[in-house]
């Protein structure tokens, strides 16, 4: 009985990862092999699409074609990097001090600020879409990367996550530093940031996965194709170029996978911190 459950669990776990295996396999196939397997979907031939986990003749041709012959791909890759990097850097700069201010000091209205921050972090994009648009329009930021990056810098999500970790630090630590004559900035720099770093890393890992994957905002606010991130490029590829599409998918997938593997503990801590009571 126990074995059976264990097998069910493994099966479910495998279903979770199958898309990665499929993308990896597809990216290593030659275009003839891909077309052969996908034939029924591409040409309306009878029968079903099928797939293999191991290509018959593994080749890096799709990657070479993508990276050498598709200049547009690099532009979009670079846009994705700029968006993700810009947002995360901004969030560090603005969000970490804000979390410290909320977690370590008491002031009138603190509870209200906290509630507003939680509400904002949980609002789906669609609710904020119109307000976002009107504000970007007024600031002249429509159709610019800054118009995607700036609102995200002021997302309240990282503040909340980091707040959770700052909040847990013992007050006695700060008190003794104050007695030694340390100013608030020094305490923040020398005690807060080092001890709160797991929270900061959690916020960055969750942030990376979110912004690398960003779709709704660029779709709504970027008209110029040269500004698009990769997440908008891939869906526009025709099924007929499936070989290249798999290679592109793999390239998009790779950084996210690396961040996931390197930061999984932080990711879990971050997820848990969103659910623990105040």
């Amino acid at each position: 009985m126990k074995k059976l459950w264990s097998a069910v669990l493994w099966l479910l776990a495998l279903i979770c990862v199958f898309p990665i295996l499929f993308v990896a396999a597809g990216s290593l196939m030659g275009s003839t092999e891909v077309k052969e397997l996908l034939g029924p979907a591409l040409s309306g031939r009878k029968g079903y699409v099928s797939w293999k986990l191991f290509p018959q003749y593994p080749t890096l041709k799709s990657y070479v074609e993508l990276l050498v012959d598709t200049p547009g791909f690099f532009v979009m890759l670079w846009n994705s990097v700029k968006i993700t990097g810009g947002v995360l850097a901004g969030q560090l700069l603005v969000g970490v001090p804000a979390a410290w201010g909320l977690a370590r000091f008491s002031f009138p209205g603190r509870k209200a600020v906290f509630t507003i921050y939680i509400a904002l972090m949980m609002m789906p994009f669609q609710v904020m879409m119109l307000s976002n648009y009107l504000m970007l329009d007024r600031l002249g930021l429509l159709d610019t990367l800054a118009g995607i990056i700036l609102p995200a810098v002021f997302s309240t999500f990282p503040v909340f996550i980091i707040y959770r970790f700052f909040e847990g630090l013992p007050e006695a630590l700060m008190e003794s530093a104050r007695l030694d004559g340390a100013g608030e900035w020094i305490i923040f720099w020398k005690i807060g940031i080092p001890l709160g770093s797991p929270g900061i890393i959690s916020a960055m890992v969750l942030g990376f996965l979110e912004y690398w994957n960003l779709l709704e905002q660029p779709m709504a606010f970027l008209k110029t194709k040269e500004l698009w991130p990769l997440s908008l490029f891939l869906p526009s590829i025709d099924m007929k170029q499936a070989g290249g599409a798999f290679a592109a998918s793999a390239v998009v997938l790779f950084p996210a996978l690396m961040v996931f593997l390197a930061g999984q503990d932080y990711l879990e801590q971050g997820i848990i911190s969103t659910a623990v009571k105040e």
Binding site: L9, W10, L12, A13, L14, C16, V17, P19, I20, F22, V23, G26, L38, P40, A41, G47, Y48, V49, S50, W51, L209, W212, N213, L215, L230, S231, L232, F233, L234, P235, I237, M239, A242, A245, F246, S249, A250, V252, L253, A256, L257, V259, F260, Q264, L267, E268
Partner: peptide, 29 residues
């Protein structure tokens, strides 16, 4: 096992669109 279950959360939507299209095609996987 926990990693395997959590992994989909990290996968960019764009990179699985193609798989999804193949999966749910009327002659699909």
């Amino acid at each position: 096992k926990k990693s395997l279950f959590l992994l989909p959360m990290a996968i960019p939507v764009a990179s699985v669109v193609l798989i999804w299209k193949l999966l749910f095609h009327s002659q699909g996987l």
